[in-house]
């Protein structure tokens, strides 16, 4: 007959082993040793009590929970919500963030190409520098503020659920395709953001 399984050792320690397996346990030294081990650990574990808090603790515990509920002004999940409330606030933020990001990248790319197409190289570099300067102060851009605040308030789970995750290698490919002016502008943006997050 086979040795006892882990579940059967648990049953044995709890006095719920079926008679046929109990007979094996009686006759098998190896299983008996293991069963003794498990029972001993169970006995040790059962001896540990939770210290009783002061009676005052119980008196005040529910009051503290009530206060916390009030203080946090929890909007209960069970409050009836219209479809407008459900759709407009939380769920649209990640979608709007993605759309805004995509639009910003496309418009920026098109504008840079239009400015530089058919223009002498010197003029193109000046135009690009102007373009870079205009993006050098993202704090002053309302659109950027809206975008960053929406993204900052979006939980990472929602962002992933909304498809905001970046595929592997996509960033590298995007950076490789950038012009020197675009890279310069990106560098400024990153530095500004790093300074801000360091505050």
């Amino acid at each position: 007959m086979s040795h006892l399984s882990p579940a059967e050792f648990v049953d044995a320690a709890e006095g719920a082993l079926v008679p046929a397996r109990a007979a094996h346990l009686e006759s098998c030294a190896s299983c008996r040793q293991q069963a003794t081990r498990v029972s001993g650990a169970l006995t040790d574990a059962r001896r540990v009590d939770v210290p009783e808090p002061s009676p005052l603790f119980w008196t005040h515990f529910s009051a503290r929970v009530r206060e916390q509920v009030e203080r946090e002004r929890i909007a209960p999940a069970w409050r009836a919500q219209s479809w407008r409330e459900r759709v407009t606030v939380r769920r649209l933020v990640p979608v709007a963030s993605v759309l805004a990001l995509v639009c910003a990248v496309i418009v920026s790319g098109l504008m840079t190409r239009e400015r530089t197409a058919g223009v002498p190289p010197e003029a193109a570099s000046i135009a690009a520098a102007v373009s870079a300067d205009s993006t050098a102060a993202p704090d002053e851009s309302e659109a950027w503020d809206v975008l960053t605040s929406a993204a900052a308030e979006t939980p990472i789970e929602d962002a992933h659920a909304a498809g905001m995750g970046v595929p592997a290698g996509a960033i590298d490919r995007a950076v490789q395709r950038m012009s020197p002016e675009e890279l310069d502008a990106l560098g400024r943006l990153l530095q500004t953001e790093m300074r801000r997050s360091g505050d």
Partner: peptide
Amino acid sequence: VGAVKANFFHALNNLKKLL
């Protein structure tokens, strides 16, 4: 239930080892 019992067995076994 099987997984719970197996977990419980391993918990007791490990507890004994640690003690």
